[in-house]
Structure formats: structure tokens, C-alpha cells
Amino acid sequence: MTLTKRIIPCLDVKNGRVVKGLNFESIKDAGDPVELAAKYSAEGADELVFLDITASNEQRATIKELVRKVASVINIPFTVGGGVKSIDDARNILLNGADKVGINTSAIKNPPIITELMTLFGRQCIVVAIDAKRNYEIKENVNIFSENEKKFWFEVFIFGGKQGTGIDAISWAKKAEKLGAGEILLTSIDADGTKNGYDILLTKSIVDNASIPVIASGGCGKPDDMVEIFEKSNVDAALAASIFHYETHGVKGVKSFLKEKKIPVRL
């Protein structure tokens, strides 16, 4: 046996509470992040990801308190991302107990930050989050794909998926790795929120071009979606949010299902 596939619940945190967006519109309170972290950890989650979506000046203080509390109740690794703009922001997260820091927009705007963080804290701490979306306006120097006879490329988006960058996602993944990223958290904007399954083409394309671990994110609506992404790509981990909120699945239920389907998981 070599490595297991990692199952990672994701918690979106706003002003210190876990929130759940419904079709990107209304946002619903889904509980206390520390309680949920302890619950998921006890149920057998392999890792946790917290995305802080608080957009305020109090963010740093909120994160610090959250990270310390979470670190004291779980004994599995966890990543904190969202709004990390500087080395100090990353330090604030790592020195308070998180194992990894996720960077997205700031890595695009200032790529050397990846190398600086890697040198200070080690490669394993640095998760570069890439949000990608199909762009059907073909241009030069991009990796072109086609589906249903339509050609497109994968464009990197920043600011929570709001702003296109014109950057090719596959080239960016390779560059991020070269600069010192330890892992890629890959979210498909096309798949996100659909609950129709992970974006297999995007995931496979990134995994096949990177030699660091990749986490697939966006589109998971049922345990079968995880089976599919693990069978059809060599991705290392699957991240999901909503499916774990339902008692019928839960982390343990999802992992038992994966094991039945011959996916190597830690149980």
C-alpha cells in the first residue's frame, strides 16, 4: 500500500461562523467552526480546509483566534486560506497552529511570495489555490481542449472567482510548483455549486502536469462523485463541503462507501 486518497471537508468561515452558500445567493449559518472541526476530525476526516471569507479589517484577529481554537481540538492537519495578502498574514496563520496556508489572489499578483513563504516555512506549508474556468475565446500560448466540438482553455480566476486573469491554469500550476508550492488546491468554477461531479478534464490536466499533490474541489454532490474523480484521474485528495453536512453521508459514511468501491482510504 502506498498513500491513501485524502477526504477533506471544507469549511467556509465568515465572521467566525461556518456558512453555507445556497446557489451562491443566500448564505446560511452552518455552525461553529471549532465544533465542526472536532466533529469531522473524530469522524475520520483526513485533513480540514478553512476558507475565511470575512471581508473586514478584523479578519486577522478573527483568524488568529479561530486557528488557535481549532488547533487545540483536532489532531489532523489543517489548512487556512482566504485573504492571505502578505508574509505576515501567512505567519499569523502558521504560527498560531495551522499546518498549511492557502494562497490564491496574492500568488497571482505577486508570484515571488510563493518562494518567500517556501523558504521561511517549508514547501509542505504552501498550498496554492487555483480557481479555473473554461474560456472559449481562443488565444495564443494556452493549452487548448475541446468538448462537444467546442474549443476552450482553462483560465485562472482571482478574487473568489470574480475576476479573470488571462493566465492559463496549466501553465500557472507548473509555475507555482517551480516557485515552491507544496500542493495545489484546484477548484473548477464551472463545476462548483452544480453538484454534478468534479471537473474531470480540468483535474486530470493539472494532475498530469504537476508532480506535487493536487486536491480536487468543486462539484461534489454525492460520494459517487469522489469515486469517479479518483478512478478517472490520479488526483490525491477530494475536497467537499455540503455533502458532509447531511447526516446520511457524514465523513465516515463517505469513506466507507469509497472503500467498498476499492478506493484506498484510511478507515
Binding site: 500500500m1 502506498t2 498513500l3 491513501t4 485524502r6 483526513d46 514547501r123 509542505q124 507544496g182 500542493e183 508532480s211 506535487i212 499533490p213 490525491d236 485528495a237 484510511r266
Partner: peptide
């Protein structure tokens, strides 16, 4: 893949 990252037995 390096780093070796995750749960192994």
C-alpha cells in the same frame, strides 16, 4: 510525487 504528503501505513 514529492513531498510525500498524506496518510500512509
Amino acid at each position: 510525487k514529492v513531498p510525500h504528503m498524506g496518510w500512509n501505513n
